[in-house]
């Protein structure tokens, strides 16, 4: 929390109470909405989780730490509620967390200065996608955790997920951002 009202925003890595609250809210939202998911017809394992949009969104809007927390805690809680233990797929929770982290960093360095509405929304979508792509590469650890072959990992795990999350990143993230922008201006923090 900046004590000098002239400062524009709180620094990226500061854990202010604002960051903590938004991180917690993000995780809770992700956990609750994450229970809504549907499978793309014709595929047996492409599972679309709309709430995933929250992870890059929180990263971009409330900083990498909030994004990281949202992804990590949110996904762990989802796994727990759904039933496969909190840690069983720890590397996927980590990938979620990295998405938020990367989105936060990328946004801060690239897009935070963009003024034009349309341009920003495009940037937001692209950053969300890039962050997702990079972060979920880390699930290659499945080769080690589950003993999958590279092909299998690409075909069964990474590919489908990239497909579904691409949709989410490009459709829902900009929509969220478009609605939040004017509100954040009005709240004036």
């Amino acid at each position: 929390m900046s004590t000098d009202s002239a400062l524009p925003r709180t620094p990226m890595w500061e854990i202010s109470s604002r960051v903590v609250v938004f991180a917690a809210v993000g995780a809770a939202l992700y956990a609750v909405l994450g229970l809504i998911s549907f499978t793309i017809p014709g595929t047996q394992n492409v599972d679309v989780r709309p709430a995933f949009a929250l992870v890059p969104f929180f990263g971009m809007r409330f900083g990498p730490i909030a994004g990281f927390f949202t992804g990590l805690v949110g996904n762990i809680v989802i796994d727990q509620i759904k039933g496969y233990g909190a840690l069983t797929y720890w590397n996927w929770s980590l990938a979620n967390a990295l998405t938020g982290l990367l989105a936060g960093i990328l946004f801060a360095v690239i897009a935070s200065r963009i003024q034009k509405e349309g341009l920003r929304l495009v940037a937001v979508g692209v950053i969300a996608w890039v962050a997702t792509f990079l972060a979920f590469l880390s699930t290659i650890t499945d080769m080690w955790v589950q003993g999958l072959t590279l092909e299998a990992w690409a075909a069964v795990a990474f590919g489908p997920l990239l497909l579904s999350n691409t949709l989410v990143a490009l459709i829902l993230v900009p929509a969220l951002d478009a609605v939040w922008e004017p509100i954040s201006k009005r709240i004036g923090r």
């Binding site: 202010s16 109470s17 609250v21 809210v25 969104f57 969220l176 509100i183």
Partner: peptide, 16 residues
């Protein structure tokens, strides 16, 4: 998704 997120965020401002 959008109203739930937006409302939670607005409330979060007050909570923080």
């Amino acid at each position: 998704v959008i109203p739930l997120t937006v409302n939670s965020l607005i409330d979060a401002e007050d909570t923080s």
